[in-house]
């Protein structure tokens, strides 16, 4: 997993819990190279799960909630650092559809070795989008947070439901119903 995710996760934790808490939690978490991450490096996903679990244990907040919060944080980060991905998009559906079709295409050009999740989308109604997230990584809630943030970003409100995709392992189907634009 790209180092930038780790760096941002720790940034968020510092913002939420303060530096001292982060220092303590990381110390206890028993991470490889002592929890030092660079944005340009690559690290195993298990480390990320370990960090989330450690903060969950410390704060009493569920790992799912922390992942969702982190999803919001990352959407904000993308908006600040990669505004070009948002230009020309007027709805959250257009943005979500672009993840597989545009953004990941660009990512692969820079990092051919990147293992990217798949986001298959289908418009199942005038205001409904179905998005099937497929990845061996247990980051469903992180995705949920990203989708929520995306909807908010375009000034929309939506109901977001998800369930394990039937007959397809490692897949989760999100159903996004926009209620107000």
């Amino acid at each position: 997993m790209k180092g930038v995710v780790f760096v941002e996760l720790l940034s968020m934790a510092e913002k939420a819990f303060g530096e001292d808490v982060v220092d303590q939690v990381i110390e206890k978490a028993d991470l490889a190279n002592g929890g030092g991450y660079t944005a340009v490096g690559n690290y195993p996903c298990e480390e990320l799960v370990k960090i989330v679990d450690a903060f969950s244990a410390h704060s009493g907040l569920s790992p799912e909630l922390l992942q969702r919060k982190f999803g919001h944080w990352m959407m904000d980060f993308f908006g600040k650092h990669y505004p070009e991905f948002f230009t020309g998009k007027s709805t959250s559906f257009e943005m979500l559809e672009a993840v597989d079709q545009e953004i990941h295409v660009e990512v692969l050009k820079l990092y051919p070795e990147a293992e990217l999740p798949r986001f298959e989308t289908e418009r199942t109604g005038e205001r409904q989008l179905e998005m099937v997230y497929t990845s061996p990584r247990p980051l469903v809630s992180f995705c949920q947070g990203l989708i929520e943030a995306c909807v908010e970003n375009f000034g929309e409100t939506a109901e977001i439901a998800f369930e394990a995709t039937p007959d397809q392992s490692n897949s989760t189907t999100f159903t996004i119903d926009v209620t107000d634009t």
Binding site: E19, I26, G34, G36, Y37, T38
Partner: peptide
């Protein structure tokens, strides 16, 4: 990555940053 509340940085934090920079 820096906290504005305090000028001092913890030792472990400094080591993490050094490791990251080396990498």
């Amino acid at each position: 990555m820096s906290s504005v509340q305090d000028d001092r940085v913890s030792r472990s934090r400094y080591e993490r940053e050094t490791t990251a920079r080396k990498e």
